[in-house]
């Protein structure tokens, strides 16, 4: 049986959480020299854990070509090591029925607490709420809206799958670049007023920034 160059997906099941290292080792042993994608579910892995996984894989000539995870911590660790990854949504079919197309409210809001630092990348299949700053050099993206309870100084991409109604709001909006769906805008040159939350959205084919409207919240209710 030649499995070379074939993509194999390994799921780390709930029952294997405690001894995932041993579990992976046995898997790699079986799959000697394959391209592997790992689905770690909501297991929280640090950079060291992920380097370890890659090292174990190398011992058995396996090549890790991607990760998927539902844990933000894992995603950040993976990205900080420079690997490809994506968020997976659990039981997405159930959730989609709740999405109201007119209001563009997403059933799943991903929440990140802490500063998103240079080189880090957050991606969310729904809305993304960040409690902290997004520093220059960092990138955040969401299929829905992005809300930042802090300063946005990096790059933000809302409506990444083409939702033109998506918005980006932050307590201080001073990004390097803003993207909504397929529109791209450079950040404003002048310093924003202090103490005023702002929102970016698409208005007649252009990305505009205006003081955050309270109606936005009413709509969500």
């Amino acid at each position: 049986m030649n499995l070379n160059n074939q993509k194999i997906i390994i799921n780390i099941e709930d029952s294997e959480y405690l001894n995932w290292k041993i579990y992976l080792k046995s898997k790699f042993k079986m799959l000697n020299s394959c391209n592997i994608e790992i689905d770690s579910k909501n297991l929280k892995l640090s950079c060291t854990d992920i380097s370890e996984i890659i090292e174990i894989a190398n011992q058995y000539n396996c090549k890790i070509i991607g990760f998927s995870s539902t844990s933000e911590k894992t995603i950040v660790s993976i990205h900080s090591l420079g690997y490809k990854s994506h968020f997976s949504i659990e039981s997405s079919s159930k959730n989609t029925s709740q999405i109201d197309d007119n209001n563009q409210i997403f059933s799943k809001t991903n929440f990140h607490q802490g500063t998103v630092r240079s080189g880090e990348y957050l991606d969310s299949p729904g809305d993304l709420l960040i409690l902290g700053d997004v520093n220059p050099g960092a990138k955040v993206s969401a299929e829905g809206n992005i809300m930042i309870w802090g300063r946005l100084l990096g790059i933000a991409h809302a409506g990444s799958k083409g939702n033109y109604q998506a918005t980006i709001s932050a307590l201080q909006l001073r990004p390097v670049q803003l993207r909504i769906a397929k529109k791209v805008a450079r950040g404003p040159e002048e310093k924003p007023q202090l103490g005023m939350a702002e929102q970016a959205r698409i208005d007649s084919e252009e990305i505009v920034i205006s003081p955050l409207e309270t109606t936005y919240f009413e709509k969500s209710n």
Partner: peptide, 19 residues
């Protein structure tokens, strides 16, 4: 200076993920 601060930020992120 901007470049040194940017790189420091990246490093701090990595230090944090490694607790």
């Amino acid at each position: 200076e901007v470049s040194a601060v940017r790189d420091a930020d990246r490093v701090i992120g990595l230090l944090n993920t490694n607790s």
